[in-house]
């Protein structure tokens, strides 16, 4: 369980930091904190990994049978490649 106020502040800024949208000064402050706080380091690393995993797991394409039925419903079968 996190206790220090500083850690709560980090969580509040976590979105901008993870998305690369935090300003340079804030980034530097967060990174100083992360270097000294292993718990926050874990939170940042595992949150980033969580996002990466969901992205990696998302189906990249539509299944062919679903695609064919869609074209049929839309009366566009003659355009199926």
């Amino acid at each position: 369980m996190l206790r220090a106020m500083e850690c709560r502040e980090l969580l509040g800024n976590l979105m901008d930091y993870l998305d690369g949208e935090a300003e340079a000064a804030l980034c530097a402050e967060i990174e100083r904190h992360l270097a000294a706080c292993p718990d926050c380091r874990v939170i940042v690393d595992t949150t980033r990994k969580t996002i990466t995993l969901y992205r990696a797991y998302a189906p990249p394409v539509i299944p062919e049978d679903v695609r064919r039925r869609l074209y049929r419903v839309l009366n566009l079968e003659d355009f199926i490649a």
Partner: peptide, 8 residues
């Protein structure tokens, strides 16, 4: 956050 073990 509660679980603070690094699994990444």
């Amino acid at each position: 956050p509660r679980e603070l073990l690094d699994w990444s």
